[in-house]
Every structure is written in structure tokens, then in C-alpha cells.
Amino acid sequence: MERRTFVATLAAMAAGLAGMPVRSSTGETEIRYLRPPGALDEEDFLGRCIHCGQCGETCPNRCIRYFGLENGAASLDTPYIVPRDKACILCMKCGEVCPTGAIKPLQRELETILDGVKMGHAWVDESICLSYQGKTCGVCYRACPLQDVAITVGRLEQPHVTDKCVGCGLCERSCIQMPQAIRIAPSHA
């Protein structure tokens, strides 16, 4: 019985795994997501992340959540952030606690963050943005933790994103327009 069962079980598992969609280069899910701050590039990240869940468990902002199978089997149980739901406040605790360095341990310091965090880049849809429509808003500017470095404001608090934006998503989260006028283009897409 034993050898037959051995082989049979192996075959069954192989069939099962083959049925599961493995990560494609663009990801399977429709949700626009970001990886935690200081994460390696997507391919390296997936190879390094051991799905331990410590980053989410340490995140004081509760923005880190975990994939099921909706982004492919390779992303199963890996951390991601949806900025519109809960953006990253760049506390950098996840990098401290990540055991494998899938999220690099970075100091919570301006220069280090600007160099090391590459979650994505914000862009403003001026056709929706209130400040470009005759109101004065400026919420995204005020929400940005790297104010005047990653984003500046002009007349009527109109936002201008600079090339230093790291993509934490606080601007997108705070935008009071529905749908949001400023959003992050993820770096992994």
C-alpha cells in the first residue's frame, strides 16, 4: 500500500498545484496595491518574503494586510497595502521586524526614506482635484509626511508632486474628493 499511496498522493498534489495560478508578471488582482515601505523589487520580494505575518502584526496603523489567492499563488500570504483604505505612515517598523529583509530595515530618517522607499509615485488628476476646480483644499499636501519635499502647493493650495515622492499613499487616503483626485501608481506594476 505504501509506495502506491506515496506516488498517488504526490500526483494529486502536483495536479492541485498545477491548477493554481502562479504569479504572472503583472499580478492577478484588480486591486491596485503597494508593498510595504522598503520592500525589495517585486520579484526579489516574493523570493524573500517567508509569509510570517510579523510586518502586519507590528504595523501600528493597521494598513498592512495579506493576500489570499486573488493575486496568484506566489503572492499568497504576502503583505500589501491599499492606500485608499489605509495608507502607510512611514513609521518603518515593518522593516525592523522583517526577519528576511524582504522589507529592508530602514531608519526613520528623511534621507534614508527618500532613498530606500519605493512604494510608488503619486499623481494628481487635475480634472477632479478640488484645488484645480476653484476650491482651496490642500489636504493631500498636509497629509504628506514629506511635505515640501515630496509635494508642494501653489495658489489655492494646488498640489504639485515632486520626483521625490515615495508612494506612501497618505495623500490618496486623505483626499476628500470622491473618487480621490490623487492616487499612487505602484512601483511594481
Binding site: 516574493l46 523570493g47 518574503c49 509569509h51 510570517c52 499563488a73 506566489a74 499568497l76 504576502t78
Partner: peptide, 18 residues
């Protein structure tokens, strides 16, 4: 082959922790 630690998906203590 997949470049992702799939074995963690079939290992109960990791599963329970998560």
C-alpha cells in the same frame, strides 16, 4: 520554481500563526 515560498502554505504551524 515559482520564486515564492509555497511550502509555507502547507505547513500547519505557519498556517496557524497566520
Amino acid at each position: 520554481a515559482s520564486g515564492s515560498i509555497l511550502v509555507a502554505a502547507v505547513y500547519p504551524p505557519a498556517i496557524i500563526g497566520r
